[in-house]
Each structure stands twice: as structure tokens, then as C-alpha cells.
């Protein structure tokens, strides 16, 4: 099958891919660009560990073909993490035990980053809706909720 060249922006930088049409965007980001932060769990859209931001919206990286990303602006978990240390959300997840094995964490970080960038002080219901598509088999979600609620409360007290 013919390979397709795809030009896109990943984490603010221009990138080119040469991919088979069947290759998922998440696979291409990991395999072609070495961005292994996005985790592939189920590879059919159920677990959410591969969630990335495409043109401003969080999407399943395994349910988008890499060839469909021509011209797209893609942000991965690497793109929402500081070069050194942890982001506010990542630090809160650590503080509140929002992860155990960490497999789901990249997807959680991406959807929470998107939520807080659009809505700095989300309600509990809005946090639950934002992470509703992300499976975590370790925490029972309570630590994740506590971390996100703490970030929202800090934004509230600092009037972010």
C-alpha cells in the first residue's frame, strides 16, 4: 500500500510523517516521532490513554489515522509538560495519589490540561465529564478527582 507524507505541527514544531494509511496517529507519534508519552492501551477507542489535542479538541489518538492529520495542530502530553519538573496538574496528581501504575496518566493529564485551559475553575461535575472517557484501573478515580478539585480550588483562591 502506498505510503502518504503528512505535514503537521506537533507541540508547536513542524513535523513530517511518512505513513501507511492504516497507521493510527498515536502510533505515528510514538513510532515516527518518538513521542512515547501517549500510551496505547486498547487501540480501539475505549481506554483513553492515547488522548491528544488535535486542533484544539481532545481526541482519541488511536481513532484518528495519521494520514488524516495533514495540516493539523497536534499537542501531546509532552507538549503540556514543562521541560523540567511537573506541571500544576501533574504535581497535583502526585500530591493526591492520582496515579498508581501511571498507564492512564498521559490521557488524564491531557484532558485535565484542556479542561483547565478552557475553564480554570471547573465544578466537580465538569471535571467528571472531562475525565469520563478516561479509564483508570488503579485509583478508583478519587485521587484524580481530589487532584483536579485541588487545582480548581487553588485557581479560585488565586482568582486565576
Amino acid at each position: 500500500m502506498k505510503k502518504h507524507s503528512v505535514d503537521l505541527t506537533v507541540n508547536g514544531r513542524e513535523a513530517s510523517l511518512l505513513v501507511e494509511p492504516r497507521q493510527s496517529l498515536a502510533d505515528a507519534l510514538r513510532g515516527e516521532l518518538g513521542l512515547t508519552g501517549s500510551h496505547l492501551g486498547c487501540e480501539h477507542g475505549v481506554c483513553g490513554a492515547c488522548t491528544i489535542i488535535v486542533d484544539g479538541d481532545p481526541v482519541r489518538g488511536c481513532l484518528m489515522l495519521a494520514v488524516q492529520a495533514q495540516g493539523a495542530d497536534v499537542v501531546t502530553v509532552e507538549g503540556v509538560s514543562p521541560k523540567v519538573g511537573l506541571s500544576e496538574i501533574q504535581a497535583a496528581l502526585r500530591e493526591f495519589h492520582g496515579l498508581q501504575c501511571g498507564f492512564c496518566t498521559p490521557g488524564m493529564v491531557v484532558v485535565l490540561h484542556h479542561l483547565f485551559s478552557e475553564n480554570p475553575r471547573p465544578s466537580e461535575a465538569e471535571i467528571r465529564e472531562a475525565i469520563s472517557g478516561q479509564l483508570c484501573r488503579c485509583t478508583g478515580y478519587q485521587g484524580i478527582m481530589n487532584a483536579a478539585k485541588a487545582v480548581a480550588a487553588r485557581h479560585q483562591s488565586k482568582n486565576v
Binding site: 477507542g45 481526541v59 481513532l63 469520563s132
Partner: peptide, 9 residues
């Protein structure tokens, strides 16, 4: 219908 990331696509 699904979740925010599936509704986005």
C-alpha cells in the same frame, strides 16, 4: 453520546 474526545471527532 460517548465522551468529549469521541464527540469531538
Amino acid at each position: 453520546v460517548g465522551h468529549p474526545p469521541t464527540r469531538a471527532r
